[in-house]
Design a protein around this nucleic acid. Structure first.
Length: 285
DNA sequence: ATGCCTGAAGGGTTCAGA
């Protein structure tokens, strides 16, 4: 199963590229963020095209800002929009949607930006992350939380830590909130797979930042053991950031081996053979 | 350049994004 997350920065503006990308990458589940469309407008825009590609759709949008969605062609059950106790600013926004796809409970999140560490929006961001964590305390064994976390987990996840000093996305409270979320047993599979690589998922539109590879890694795939132990490959799809009219974020993709369900029998490694190296299907950049 | 692009709403510009 191939699961991807992508902040598309307006699904209306990105529709042609999104459809081409679906055809090219053939993901089974896609978590979208910053769709910036109300649900009826999203369905009117893409419902037919997605149905033709066998995707079911869970949308949780609003006009102009925010908006998340899950597309799945491996089933889409028990959809929940938002989460219990979700904070607002001041109204609750469209920032989380959850569904079960082929046995995995998947949440697509668009974490508040935070704007400035002294702002109300920053406090909202921390409250939102804490609320998300609390809502996941009783999570199923097979859980994925993915999307635009709007936090760079470490200084290795920004192109120049010094230039971010005092700004959002890198402050200690934000990183601590992410650590607390991961303390539910959610692993950053991208960083596990590429522990020492320069890996970014967002590059500012301005000043040739993408061309110079001056970015941040803020789009994450967080997976519980039951999922993370199945990861065969994971990478950032930088191709989707190139060319004309891209989002400022690139998709992050992971491929999962089939779940052990008894039908395939016990997996016995060949005697004295080294464990196979996990699939390096693509360089990280 | 302390917002260098981009998207959206709404109105001839401003806000938001990270």
């Amino acid at each position: 199963m191939r699961i991807a997350t992508w902040n598309v920065n307006s699904v209306k503006q990105r529709a042609p590229r999104l459809l081409d990308w679906l055809d090219q990458r053939q993901p089974d589940v896609v978590c979208l963020q910053e769709t910036k469309l109300a649900d009826d407008a999203f369905i009117a825009l893409l419902g037919d095209e997605l149905a033709a590609r066998r995707y079911e759709l869970a949308v949780h949008g609003q006009a102009s800002w925010n908006g998340v969605a899950i597309l799945s062609r491996v089933g889409l059950a028990d959809v929940v929009r938002g989460f219990p106790g979700e904070p607002g600013f001041p109204q609750v926004e469209a920032r989380a949607v959850t569904a079960t796809c082929d046995g995995v409970r998947i949440t697509s999140v668009y974490v508040p930006n935070g704007r400035d560490p002294e702002s109300d929006h920053y406090r909202y961001k921390l409250e939102w992350l804490a609320g998300l964590r609390d809502s996941l305390r009783g999570r199923p064994a097979a859980t994925v939380v993915c999307g635009d976390l709007n936090v760079a987990p470490t200084d290795d996840d920004v192109f120049d830590p010094a230039s971010f000093a005092g700004h959002t996305h890198v402050t200690e409270p934000e990183r601590a909130a992410l650590v607390e979320l991961q303390a539910l047993g959610l692993r950053d599979v991208m960083r596990e797979r590429w522990p020492d690589e320069r890996v970014f998922t967002f590059w500012d539109y301005r000043a040739g930042m993408f061309h110079k590879d001056l970015g941040m890694r803020i789009d994450l795939l967080l997976a519980s053991d039951a999922v993370a132990d199945r990861v065969a490959a994971t990478w950032v799809d930088r191709q989707a950031r190139k060319g004309t009219g891209p989002s400022d974020h690139a998709p992050v993709i992971m491929d999962l081996d089939d779940a052990p369900d008894g039908d395939i029998g016990p997996v016995v490694p060949p005697p004295s053979a080294p464990a196979p190296r996990r699939g390096r299907t693509s360089p990280p950049r």
